[in-house]
């Protein structure tokens, strides 16, 4: 597939389907985030990138064999790793025996918020969420430095819309 527009659309659809899978697993909060960020926001950002880079992939002369072998080998190892995992939904799985019972039993009395996900995210694991917010903030700073740079903004620089119109005009010619 060399049409990058199609690739972006497919990844958006993939995110939406993943969100449905999360709903099926009763992880509504995660599904919410996945649908909003994966299917919505990142698709728009990728489309914005496409206008800057062009809509067709450049043909490479390199052979795909080495990357293909690496991908398949990694996949096989990962699937092999899942073989001795506990069965899906097994109540005796370690993940359900560690801190989860305490959250389920005590969060009503300790935090008093009906949505346990929120009480875990904001209160029990508040430090993690603080780190997460800082990561978003740092990512923003990174993007700003990478895209606008430390140079002063050029007033005559074309915006995305003007660029698109210019391309349209070039095509008509």
């Amino acid at each position: 597939m060399t049409n990058l527009f199609g690739v972006v659309m497919l990844s958006g659809i993939y995110s939406l389907v993943t969100a449905l899978v999360f709903v099926n697993l009763d992880a509504v909060d995660v599904a919410f985030t996945e649908a909003a960020v994966g299917a919505g926001l990142s698709t728009v950002l990728m489309l914005g990138t496409l206008v800057l880079t062009g809509k067709e992939e450049i043909k490479t002369t390199r052979k795909p064999w080495l990357p293909l072998i690496v991908c398949v080998a990694t996949g096989v190892v990962l699937i092999y790793g899942t073989l001795d995992m506990p069965k899906y939904g097994d109540p005796n799985a370690p993940v359900h025996q560690h801190v989860a019972p305490r959250y389920i039993d005590d969060s009503e009395g300790e935090v008093g918020v009906p949505n346990i996900v929120t009480s875990v995210l904001a209160s029990y694991r508040g430090f993690d969420t603080l780190g997460e917010t800082t990561v978003v903030f740092t990512a923003l700073i990174g993007v700003l430095i990478l895209l606008t740079g430390l140079r002063k903004r050029d007033k005559n620089e074309l915006t995305l819309e003007e660029l698109e119109e210019q391309r349209k005009r070039e095509k008509e010619l």
């Binding site: 926001l41 990138t49 923003l140 700003l144 895209l147 606008t148 915006t159 995305l160 003007e162």
Partner: peptide, 15 residues
């Protein structure tokens, strides 16, 4: 603010 600003910078950038 981060998401909006990232979009602003992407959309405001020409070549």
């Amino acid at each position: 603010s981060a998401m909006t600003l990232i979009f602003y910078t992407f959309a405001g950038r020409g070549r």
